[in-house]
Every structure is written in structure tokens, then in C-alpha cells.
């Protein structure tokens, strides 16, 4: 049952919580994605990698309902997506633009609760719990401009968790952060997601990050974006920054992914 233990790739082609079926999309008169089909099972952690221009971010925005496909369907829990929904949360890469600078950390988390119609009396304890969860206790009264990049991204994650999402979509969330902060946040995200049981699609250009985090890594080919590789990651959980990255299977997958990216760019 638990997707984290592996053995989900077989179910990938049909069904699943998030399913792309023959999806194509044109943006600005250009075909960005063509005939993209894959499915993500409930609780699965899928990473999407690929050379720039392969449409990874576009795929994520389709999954979020922010874009409508030109062809094919994107469905969630069996129903075609009609637009964004509260049980799908998206973490943007540019946390500086995605947070409201005029609201404190607590206020930014509150926005998600306000949108969901949570009565104001119930908000404060939930906000405290969420800030605590992402490692920002006692920062509730700070404005985003007073926080570091890592803290701002934690805050955005807290706001997404406030949606109590069934699926969490992350668009290169750690791309702008330094290596140490990035590794810390990788482990925090694994712990948070493990605790909530949410399905995750995680877009990254960092191949090692994809293997480290994912149950499965999908490699996209560019121009137009389509699936080139679908790898199952059979590494024990919980993952460990040293042991996992030194695991022979990790090194094998890493080689395979690097070869894929190199040939896709050639």
C-alpha cells in the first residue's frame, strides 16, 4: 500500500491520483508539451527533471490547474481538472514574489486559512502549529523582508501546508538557495511529506536532489516536452544525506540520469 516502499511504476500508466493522458499544450503559439502521459499514485513522491526548455514547470502548472491543456486531459482523483483547487498546493521557486510583503509570517499563513473560510478564532493556534512545523517558531511577527531566503521558502511551504493539501507541487523550490540550506530543507520536506502522506510532484534541475527525494524520477525530453525516462528509485527510507548519497544504487541511478540528460541535450 505504501508508495514509499516502491513498486508503483507498474500502476503508472493508468489511474493514479494525478494523471496526465495525452496532454499537449501551446503557449504563445509554441508547442511546449506534446503527448505527455503519466500517473502519480496517492502518497507517491515523483521528481521531474530535464534539460531547460523541456516543459517541467509547464507540466507542474498543468497539474496545479493554472494552465488548461490544449489537448488531452489532466485529472485529479479521477475527475478532469477544471482549475486550481484548494487540496492541491503549489510551492513556487521565487518565494520573494509569492509571499505578501505587507503581511507578517503569521499573516501569510493566515491567507490560506482565510481563503478556506477557517473562523478567525481557530486560525492562531493552527498558524502557530504550522510555523512550528516548518522550523519558524517565534518568527510569526516578522515580515518576509526581515527573513532569509531559506526562512521565506519555509514560510511558503507552511502556507501550502495550511491548505492541508492532498497533493503538493513544488517548482524548483530550493533552486535559489545555498547548498547547506538546500540539504536541510530537503530533509525537512521529506519529514513533513512523510507525516502528512501528501502526494508530491517535485520539479528540479538538480539530478541528485531528484534521486535523493523521489520514489520515482521522470526525465523529460525537450522541444516539445515529452517523457524520455521513468526511473524507479529503490532506496531505503528514511533517506540520509551521507548514507543515501553513497549507496551503490544512488550512484547507478545518478549515472543513468546524467547520461540521459547529456544525450537529451545533444
Amino acid at each position: 500500500m505504501n508508495a514509499r516502499t516502491g513498486g508503483v511504476a507498474a500502476t503508472a500508466s493508468r489511474g493514479g491520483q494525478i494523471a496526465f493522458a495525452g496532454v499537449g499544450i501551446e503557449l504563445g503559439g509554441k508547442t511546449i508539451i506534446e503527448n505527455l502521459s503519466f500517473a502519480v499514485s496517492p502518497g507517491e513522491f515523483v521528481c521531474i527533471v530535464g534539460a531547460s526548455g523541456c516543459g517541467k514547470t509547464t507540466a507542474l502548472r498543468l497539474a496545479a490547474g493554472l494552465y488548461r491543456p490544449s489537448r488531452g486531459t489532466v485529472s485529479f482523483s479521477g475527475a478532469a481538472m477544471a482549475g486550481p483547487r484548494r487540496d492541491i498546493a503549489i510551492v513556487f521557486q521565487d518565494y520573494g514574489k509569492a509571499l505578501l510583503p505587507w503581511r507578517t509570517a503569521a499573516g501569510n499563513v493566515a491567507l490560506a486559512l482565510e481563503a478556506a473560510g477557517v473562523p478567525s478564532a481557530q486560525r492562531a493556534p493552527r498558524i502557530d502549529a504550522l510555523l512550528d512545523k516548518v522550523g519558524l517558531p517565534a518568527h510569526g511577527a516578522k515580515y518576509p523582508s526581515e527573513m532569509s531566503g531559506g526562512m521565506q521558502q519555509r514560510l511558503q511551504i507552511a502556507r501550502c501546508l495550511a491548505q492541508e493539501p492532498a497533493a503538493l507541487l513544488m517548482d524548483e523550490p530550493f533552486g535559489a538557495l545555498d547548498a547547506m540550506t538546500r540539504q536541510g530543507l530537503q530533509d525537512e520536506v521529506l519529514a513533513l511529506v512523510g507525516a502528512s502522506g501528501a502526494t508530491v510532484i517535485f520539479v528540479t534541475h538538480d539530478l541528485e536532489e531528484a534521486i535523493y527525494l523521489g520514489d520515482r524520477v521522470i526525465g523529460l525530453l525537450p522541444h516539445p516536452g515529452r517523457i524520455g525516462l521513468d526511473l524507479e528509485v529503490d532506496l531505503p527510507r528514511p533517506r540520509d544525506q551521507l548514507a543515501t548519497r553513497e549507496h551503490p544504487e544512488f550512484l547507478r541511478l545518478r549515472r543513468e540520469l546524467f547520461d540521459f540528460i547529456r544525450t537529451s541535450e545533444a
Partner: peptide, 28 residues
């Protein structure tokens, strides 16, 4: 910031909430 409108869509904010909680404070 267009990103904030996307955040509003993802959170399912009402039209009035988008004006009073996103656009107006941003333009203040």
C-alpha cells in the same frame, strides 16, 4: 506581482478577497 494572482488562484481566494487582500495592499 502576477505571481501573487497565481497564489490567490491556487488558494481559491474570492474576487473581493483578491482586490482587498492582494491588489489594494500591493498598490498602497
Amino acid at each position: 506581482e502576477p505571481r501573487l494572482y497565481e497564489v490567490a488562484r491556487a488558494l481559491g481566494l474570492s474576487r473581493a478577497a483578491v482586490i482587498f487582500k492582494i491588489a489594494l495592499p500591493s498598490a498602497s
